[in-house]
Amino acid sequence: MQIKSVDIFCEIIDNFGDIGVVYRVAKELKKIYNNQVKIRVILNRIDEFLSINPSAKNLEIQEIDGICYCTYEYIKKNMCTFSTANVIIEAFGCTIPEEYMNVAYNNSDLILNLEYLSAEDWVEDFHLQESILGKGKLRKFFFMPGFTEKTGGIITDSLYLDRITKVKNNLSEYRKKYLKNIDNYDNKLIGTIFTYEKNFAPLMRDLKKLDREVALLAMGEKTQESFKEFFKKNFVEKLGNIYKYGKIEIEFYDFLSQEEYEELINVVDFNFVRGEDSFIRAVLTGKPYLWHIYCQKEFIHMDKLQGFLDKYRAQVQGQIAEDILLNQEKLFKDYNFRNENTLDEGKEEFSNFFHNLNEIERVNSLYKDFLILNCNLINKIKDFIEKF
């Protein structure tokens, strides 16, 4: 099927992850099709998009880099002059306005329900299964991101891969740009920390044991508030936006654009990330990372985490010492074991992680290469639509 136009719907709830994914998909589709395909992103609200894209304005409709961004309210008020796209992407099971769908049933051809990322085995069975709509000519299919060739893959967009190469080729320049507030940064272990609510006592305990100075870049309100709780119980020096705890310094980073964040995580030595969007960005750096997975009731998130660990093991087993791999798996589980986000102290131990950073990075680079080669979500979407 020829792709003439694509409408991507995103219903933002309480974080930047959903719009982060949608923004990447839209930009990559625009790069692939240039001006041959009209691409629109339709958001239930604009606030989070204003934060991740400094070019965005608080308008109901605007064009940025050849992509149209508009709000649900705009299309509700203007459906009489607003034609539906022949391809619709429904991000994460969002609710598309009824006014739009009433027209789309007969005027559009295909709708893809782009689901959340999961590594569980059942994803392969549901990927590209049809959901019967029962009216009009419009057909709907589930598109399930994942970590195997039989799933929808992950967003390995060329824009990000190009940015990684640019940072690596100009590392000194980018380190000056992002680490300018850290004295003697070339001799320090540096990492980004982006989490939900988290007790950082175990992390700080194990970092103190290292024989080198450490700098942590604390990203996001919840991360910074969690560090403040640690500071209340421990003596720290505060120098502007930097807190010093012995040989560890923590810098509270201001909010970055999506592109700036992608540069930063390729500058540092390791990344602790949260959710889905920043997790995949960290995986594609090939650097050591730790994932704070989104917490769900009845420990459902632990099943999803185990699914990822199983897929990771399947690709790297035999290429890394078994004791290092086992310690990695234990750390991921201990770091995430919770029934709700609290500041309770966990059982995680980080010493093995930091003592094996070079080996972990070597193997993570191999895993990254596998995903780029076999699990490119954008290419899989493009191929499915064109063959539809």
Rank of each mutant, 00 (worst) to 15 (best):
Y312S: 07
D125W: 01
L189E: 08
R205S: 14
F272K: 10
H301T: 04
L217Q: 09
N35V: 04
N181A: 08
E213S: 12
Y243S: 10
H127N: 08
R205H: 14
E345Y: 05
S118F: 03
D162T: 08
A218T: 01
A91R: 09
K287T: 03
V167F: 15
Q317E: 14
S131A: 07
R338P: 01
D254C: 00
F308S: 02
D162V: 06
F299W: 06
L325S: 07
F82A: 09
D14C: 09
D383R: 09
K38T: 06
K27T: 09
D303F: 00
N234E: 04
D211H: 13
E213F: 13
K244H: 13
G286K: 14
I32W: 01
N58C: 10
N15Q: 06
E348N: 03
V268R: 05
G93R: 07
D323R: 09
S278K: 15
K150N: 02
F230D: 00
I265Q: 15
K188C: 02
I280M: 07
E263P: 09
K247M: 01
F235L: 14
V87A: 07
G275C: 07
E237V: 03
F354M: 06
N78S: 11
Q129M: 10
T81L: 10
K4V: 04
E28G: 06
Y294R: 07
R24D: 11
I381S: 04
L159W: 02
F16A: 14
K228R: 08
I8G: 15
Y294C: 03
R40G: 01
E340S: 13
D277G: 15
N341G: 06
A282P: 10
R212D: 02
G152Q: 01
P202Y: 00
N102Y: 09
E251K: 06
A201P: 03
K57L: 06
I300W: 09
D186Y: 12
N86D: 15
N187T: 10
K30Q: 10
N15M: 03
Q2R: 05
Y33N: 00
K188Q: 07
N102W: 05
E60T: 06
D162P: 11
D121N: 06
L138C: 07
V41Q: 14
Y72Q: 04
K244W: 08
E298D: 15
D162F: 14
L210A: 09
D310Q: 07
N271E: 05
K380L: 03
D344L: 00
N187E: 14
I46S: 14
L373Q: 12
S172E: 15
M302K: 09
F9M: 09
K304V: 01
I381D: 02
K168V: 00
F235M: 11
I19P: 02
E63R: 15
D47V: 02
M101D: 08
G20D: 12
Q129H: 11
G152H: 03
A26I: 00
T342W: 01
R212N: 08
I61E: 15
R175D: 09
Q315S: 11
F235P: 11
N352D: 12
F194A: 10
D383T: 08
E340K: 12
R40C: 00
W291Q: 08
F255A: 10
K304G: 12
T342A: 02
P145S: 02
N199M: 04
I64M: 12
I46Q: 14
V214F: 05
K228G: 04
